[in-house]
Design a protein around this nucleic acid. Structure first.
Lengths: 185, 185
DNA sequence: CGCGAGTGTCAACGCTTGTTGGCATAGATT
DNA sequence: AATCTATGCCAACAAGCGTTGACACTCGCG
């Protein structure tokens, strides 16, 4: 029962601006001053409400994992379902982009990314993997493909990857993820 | 017939230090001062010999593409051969890591990365793709998997991906690349 | 009304950054 | 030996950074 504060709008504006800046520029190039300018407030307010740039980033990078619901999905459809889920998540939430852009040079962001993928993909792999001991490896492999796709599409903007539509992406990546989920080598 | 200069050793030391710093920290976090300290020279010398931080990075990012020799390889071995080639390239050349770490926030590095993958993977895909029109897409898909693997292994250091040995990596990624090369969806 | 907490503005701090110009020395050239 | 260029170091610059503290204003509550 946290009482609404008069500054809630300001706090939200800061968070929104921060999310956009971190997503567009990464942690180091995104400046407090630029974020404050976007939010049309004074830089010192950012410090007052979030303590430091580091903590502001932590606040931005905080979010629900929203595991996909795979209950009604047949086993052989997991790959496609996962790819579809991640595709939508990436397109709809700048926080993931912020995390990826920052994780490359900022250790805290990389750590957060590790946590997220361990917590998000790990359990699914554990549920499906033929050999439980291989679950972590399978989750890691899926991460390589999903993050690699996000990297090429949203960050590096490789033209052929940008041009793929949703269905084509699912059709191409789905079987890969499926194979990482239950094939053996 | 460029005459050897007395400062060649210094130039080389700068380039080596710059490569390491850019690979470890990315473009913005790598500072001229840190590079100069590593090379045990004065920061102003970096400017004298390379003009600017930007041009220094360009000099670091310049390198031969070294396309893999696939002449003796059977068609169905292309995927594995490509993965093996890239794995060795990534492990043996910090420039690629520098490019990846920088490309995420530095536009010039991203552009260079696009060029390299278009020039390196594109022709191979064009040679093998069942439909020539799909070659660019296939090259892009291969890039997503290769770069994603490099990202997770060398940059984000996801433990299960770091732990994979060379053969396991080839066994897992090879078929994926193979499928991107000639399967149809 | 008066008062205190909450909110916002302004100016400045200490530090680091890329970059520049001047000065001393070493080596080659004449 | 004298001269000139190349090389290296030093000190400084302007700009930008995260961060801080002091000061004004606006509420809501007594």
């Amino acid at each position: 029962m946290t009482a609404p504060r008069r500054s809630d709008a300001t706090r939200a504006a800061i968070l929104t601006a921060a999310r956009e800046r971190f997503a567009a520029d990464g942690f180091e190039r995104a400046t407090i001053r630029a974020i404050a300018a976007d939010a049309r407030i004074d830089p010192s307010l950012v410090m007052r409400y979030y303590g430091s740039k580091e903590k502001l980033f932590t606040a931005v990078a905080e979010f629900d994992l929203r595991l996909p619901d795979l209950d009604g999905v047949p086993l052989e459809g997991y790959g496609a379902a996962l790819v579809a889920h991640f595709l939508d998540r990436w397109a709809g939430d700048e926080k993931l982009l912020a995390l990826l852009r920052s994780g490359v040079t900022h250790e805290a962001a990389a750590e957060r990314m590790r946590e997220i993928f361990a917590a998000q993909v790990g359990p699914i792999a554990a549920r499906v993997a033929p050999d439980p001991a291989s679950a972590a490896t399978r989750a890691g492999l899926i991460a390589t493909q999903i993050l690699g796709f996000a990297l090429c599409r949203f960050v590096l903007r490789l033209p052929p990857v940008v041009d793929l539509d949703r269905e084509a992406a699912i059709a191409w990546l789905g079987p890969t993820v499926q194979r990482y989920l239950h094939d053996t080598i």
